[in-house]
Amino acid sequence: MSSSVDIDDITLTYKGASGGVLALQGTTLNVKRGEFAAVVGPSGCGKSSLMKLVTGLIRPDKGDISVFGDKVRGPVKIAGMAFQNPNLLPWRKVADNVLLPLEIVEPHRHRFRRDNAKYREQVEALLKTVGLSGFGDRYPWELSGGMQQRVSLCRSLIHEPALLMLDEPFAALDAFTREELWCVLRDLWQKLGFTVILVTHDLREAAFLADTIHVMSARPGRIVMTKAVDLPRPRDLEICFEPRFTDIVHELRAKIAEVRQT
């Protein structure tokens, strides 16, 4: 299988008033095409920085990053992103929020006016797959946090990106809603087949969703363990109670505890 994201021995320093912060050092990571990768690690270890590097929003001091074979030199222009905060635009209705990427990404932005009806149908279809059928005409503030996060996921996927970057997207949700959204994401991924990098601090979330879990060390962050999750697919929430699942979570937990100490 070919590579979709290739991070090769990068170093990243933030320059600040009180000297530089070495955020990442010697970080190497490979994600295959169509793979669901999760990155876990202690807080402040550079996970969000890694996401920004892959999408080309910031540049490393040293090392190379390739996305689908092309070296990253600036913003990648194709990646979908979603964060802990849904960041919806409060002046736009739900459907118009989801449409936003199509107003920006080529070639859609030039067809946006002409194919508006078609795009709106796509939005409605996508909203339906995340269980928000008929909510397109609402404003974001009329939706619960979990629903807003679903909208945010739709927005990150409407332009059918080959790469989806998720930075702790479910961290602010209650446990039930979070598990619901795991399934939403699982189904979307299985249906659309994009590559995902999911940053999370929830080890069960990583084990339930990912093919591969990368554990990062404390700052400066690098990958200290890569764990393949060989649980069969499609996975059901019931799997979270099976020993082979909990074994994986225990193993990850032990590793994180170890890297936090040092």
Partner: peptide, 14 residues
């Protein structure tokens, strides 16, 4: 403006 929102848009080539 929320920096993350800016990130979302810039990653789309905005």
């Amino acid at each position: 403006m929320e920096p993350e929102l800016e990130d979302v848009l810039r990653a789309l080539g905005a």
